[in-house]
Amino acid sequence: MASGTVTGKTQKRSLGQWAASRDGQKVFVMIAFMVIPLLLLFVFTYLPFAEMFGFSFYNMKYIGARKFVGLKNYIKVFQRDDCFGALKLSLYYMVGSVVQLALSLYLATILSFKVKGGNIFKGFMFFPFLINGIAIGFIFKFFYTRGFVFDTVLQWCGFELENLPYWLKDQSINNISLVGTSVWRYFGQNMVLFIGAIMSVDAELYEAAMLDGANRFQQFKYIILPSIKTIITLNVILSITGSLSAFEPPYVITSGANGTGTYFVIMHEIAHTQQKVGLASAMAVVLLLIIFAATILQKLFFKYIFKGADDEDLNATVKRDKKLAKYAARKAGR
């Protein structure tokens, strides 16, 4: 390193040796520290990614002979009613995530000002995020059962049981019920993220605004909203891609019955129950392509919207891309 040059020329040879060993050590440490994570990344992410692409051209099961069928699987994805059509259900999840974002932004704004018992409210609303998926499945099967929790609460509010639908069976409402559980699970977590973002706004801005006589709504509109613009954008992008890959609520609560099977639930069924690995792989590839397209389109859209507000250079866009990925990882919590 740089400090080595100070030592002088008299010890040139030993210095050279020292440098060599130091450099050697450096390379050694780099390899030692990187080989395991890179191997894991390769084996569990990029190798399966490549394999999946390959599988999508075969008619195959996990075990046994494989037959090359070209693009047949892809054609099937678009022809079968249960495959591509399932993407329609994503619309429910998209609407749900917009509701969720608005709700958590509203609650975050309330909680970032002084509120009595704020931490307790925050804790209550956040806790659902920490419950495991299977437990959530049972909790909501129970919650929505005819005459059980939800119906009872609605009866307290004056509804008649006869007028209430079967929340998980009635096809006109069951997808909404499922989306509700997803909103229930994640709005608190979103709220915590937004509170963090709002808290990072310089407190002096609020004081100045107060002195100028700005009310809460004006503070929200002119201080909070602009300063958490980025995080909201990221959340919108993620929620749209997330809606396309909606999986958990139907998987754990209804197992995709009664018209609640989203694209991934059906893909899971095709892959692991029917063992049509090729078809499932083609489905996965198609959805990945759609997700990438959606992400790029949205980025262009937001870039267009913010063009007037601030001239974003290429650097900033790249930065946002990276943030998006990091953010996605954090939200996924894996």
């Binding site: 190798l47 399966p48 999946m52 991934f264 990945l288 990882a329």
Partner: peptide, 22 residues
């Protein structure tokens, strides 16, 4: 490479991870 990996939905990947695990 690590960042890009986060954008791949986990459930989709399990179709082929299953084969590798086997």
């Amino acid at each position: 490479l690590f960042l890009f990996a986060t954008l791949l939905p986990g459930v989709a990947m399990q179709v082929s991870v299953f084969e590798i695990m086997t």
